[in-house]
Nucleic acid binder design. Sequence first.
DNA 1: CCTACCGATCGGTAGG
DNA 2: CCTACCGATCGGTAGG
Lengths: 192, 192
Amino acid sequence: MPFSESRKDQVIQAAAELFRVRGYAATSMRDLATELGIEAASLYSHIKSKEEILITLCFGMAEKFMDSLDQVEKNQSGYAGQLRAGILGHIAVMAENLTASAVFMNEHRHLSDKYLKDFLLLRINYINRFKRIIERGIRAGEFNPVDTKLAVMTLFSSLNWMPHWYDPEGIIDPEKLGNQLADMLIEGLKTK
Amino acid sequence: MPFSESRKDQVIQAAAELFRVRGYAATSMRDLATELGIEAASLYSHIKSKEEILITLCFGMAEKFMDSLDQVEKNQSGYAGQLRAGILGHIAVMAENLTASAVFMNEHRHLSDKYLKDFLLLRINYINRFKRIIERGIRAGEFNPVDTKLAVMTLFSSLNWMPHWYDPEGIIDPEKLGNQLADMLIEGLKTK
DNA sequence: CCTACCGATCGGTAGG
DNA sequence: CCTACCGATCGGTAGG
């Protein structure tokens, strides 16, 4: 049945917005219900638990980020080119899912141990794929021999903080932003 | 009386650690009491409320960051030099107060409206002082004409994410880290 | 999607 | 710093 899950999606979207603004722990199921104009108990005909919403949001975003990087590694050659495309892809995914991205980054720690372990594994894998691009770029003489851990952490710090200040109503579009950010970060790496 | 506040400081330090790991909302006064080996009700002979702890931590760190930047603006000349010294100062304050810094950055949104407003004002002032250094550097021809908002946001993204990954037991010391970070960020700004 | 409700836990107070 | 306790709120269930 088409659109049969749309009410569940609405619940998850409204929850994402509240989780982003107030945080997961400070958002009650009654807050969420009020937002949707129903009673708290009624939420449970759409979702199994509060945590199920968080799981859906965190792992859903993880998948989008992974898919983006898959495309980059398949299509892009040259390490500076791969790094730039990776940055653009990451920003594009975030810009299309600003609210869910903020939850992905700031609220994943509220996952129970079982899910948190898997989540952190996915995240470290993703980061390591970027780190490897930089390492290979250094070995190929395309980048300066910087501290790769520091470089990749600086990269993700810049990327991940974006939901805190990026204004979707603003003039700057995600691709232009991505290129400017890539310029700033890659120019510091490139050999002259 | 010297050290007369040390028990209160212990309470605040233990709270900072819990707030950092679990978040403010997910940390109960009973968690905090257990950590200190006392009953929850006993906490209230040292502090007035849970929020008082958060206020102390957030505004205490704000003051340290401001003091650091005051020193920089007084002693340092040249915009690249001011920017580098500002970055080093910010990192030094963070490295000396890693736990409180994490709370400062991630938990301030749980302040009640009254305090949150003041806090956000302090923060925007601090950021704008860095932005002005970059703007002046551009006008003086010392930096490339980048988007200053983007530049300053990238800068603070990198700085503020540090408590998430910086390992105080690791080999890399704060000053070396600060200089590397400053290199990466300032080289992308400087005119060649 | 609602009414009615549960046991658990929350921040905090009274009084010592 | 403790015992004893408060009213409010939490995530979630039963049954319709």
